[in-house]
Simulated scan of single mutants.
Amino acid sequence: METIKNAANYVSESISGAGATASKEANKNVAKDSNAGIGTRLNAAGDALSDKVDESGHNAKADVHKEAAKH
Rank of each mutant, 00 (worst) to 15 (best):
I4N: 07
N43K: 15
L49S: 06
R41Y: 05
N43F: 06
I38Q: 03
E2W: 01
L42Y: 03
T40H: 10
A18G: 10
S14C: 09
K66Q: 15
K24R: 15
V53M: 04
D33C: 01
S34K: 04
A69G: 08
V30W: 03
Y10K: 13
K52I: 04
K61H: 08
A45N: 05
G39P: 01
D47Y: 10
A60I: 13
A68G: 02
A20V: 02
S16A: 14
T21V: 07
I15G: 11
L42K: 14
Y10Q: 03
S23Y: 04
R41A: 08
G46K: 15
I38L: 06
N35S: 15
S12N: 15
N6K: 05
K5R: 14
M1N: 11
K52C: 00
E2M: 11
S23Q: 08
T3N: 07
S23H: 03
A36M: 12
I4F: 10
A8Y: 07
M1V: 09
A45M: 13
T3Y: 09
R41K: 13
R41P: 00
V53N: 05
S56P: 03
E67R: 05
D54Q: 11
N6F: 12
A22H: 02
D54P: 00
D33K: 04
T40E: 12
K70P: 06
G46F: 09
S16M: 00
N29L: 11
